[in-house]
């Protein structure tokens, strides 16, 4: 029963909160959408925290996504032991990289008086949730090896079952506690997503790559000559 609540109901509730929350915030308060960067207040520590954290977490999330989208390819890739070792090693290295980055960012928030002045309670909640996520993730990589192998056999079918509404909770329920905490924490992060600075993820400015350099706005739409 508890498994059903945690692994079947909670994900949908989290997703619903995320979607409704994001739409509400976007429609009523776009002004609050920002990366709320504090680089202006503190520069040096941020470099060692922010850069490893962002690049690391992007690659790690892409890794998770690859496992969900292309499980067969991942299995095939892992067929050669050397490739498996490389994948596992890379994953662990990235995990440690983001862990270091996140700890530095946390220390910076806690110790730099200027940065503390612009730290909201949601910032701290978010940082702690992320820390839990990274610690359980790195723990899983260390204690339950070959994650890239068993992830596609367990988490992938479970997550896919969520999407197709054909729930297969057992896949997750039978995994070790550490992994379950990792998964649950991910759903919690999803639920708090709209109420934190994480919304800046949705503003990744890819359109900059092709827009013209200058932006000119006419008051009235102009007839093109």
């Amino acid at each position: 029963m508890i498994d059903l609540v945690l692994f079947a109901i909670l994900p949908y509730v989290a997703l619903a909160i995320a979607i409704v929350g994001l739409l509400w915030r976007y429609r009523t308060n776009q002004f609050s959408y920002s990366s709320v960067s504090s680089q202006f207040l503190e520069n040096r520590q941020l470099f060692w925290g922010s850069v490893p954290w962002h690049y690391g977490i992007i690659l790690i999330l892409l890794g998770h996504l690859t496992g969900i989208l292309f499980p067969a390819s991942v299995m095939a890739f892992n067929g050669v032991p050397l490739r498996l070792y490389i994948l596992e090693g890379t994953g662990l290295a990235l995990g440690l990289l983001v862990l270091v980055g996140l700890v530095l960012l946390l220390l910076r928030r806690g110790t730099n008086p200027r940065v503390r002045a612009v730290t909201s309670s949601m910032d701290l909640v978010l940082l702690l949730l992320l820390l839990l996520s990274i610690v359980t993730g790195v723990g899983t990589a260390i204690f339950y090896r070959w994650g890239s192998g068993w992830y596609v056999q367990t988490a992938t079918p479970y997550l896919r079952s969520l999407v197709t509404f054909s729930l297969k909770v057992d896949y997750l329920a039978s995994l070790p506690l550490l992994v379950k905490v990792h998964a649950l924490n991910a759903f919690v992060i999803l639920a708090v997503f709209p109420f934190t600075r994480l919304v800046h993820m949705l503003s990744v400015p890819l359109a900059y790559l092709w827009r013209p350099y200058q932006v000119v706005i006419w008051r009235r739409p102009r007839v093109q000559q």
């Binding site: 002004f31 900059y208 706005i217």
Partner: peptide, 24 residues
């Protein structure tokens, strides 16, 4: 973000506070 723009009518350059995402 494309948040800064030049007003065509008078050339004043402004930052849209709604579109700015603080990339600085």
């Amino acid at each position: 973000s494309g948040a800064i723009y030049k007003r065509a009518e008078d050339g004043i350059v402004l930052v849209s506070q709604e579109k700015c995402r603080g990339w600085r």
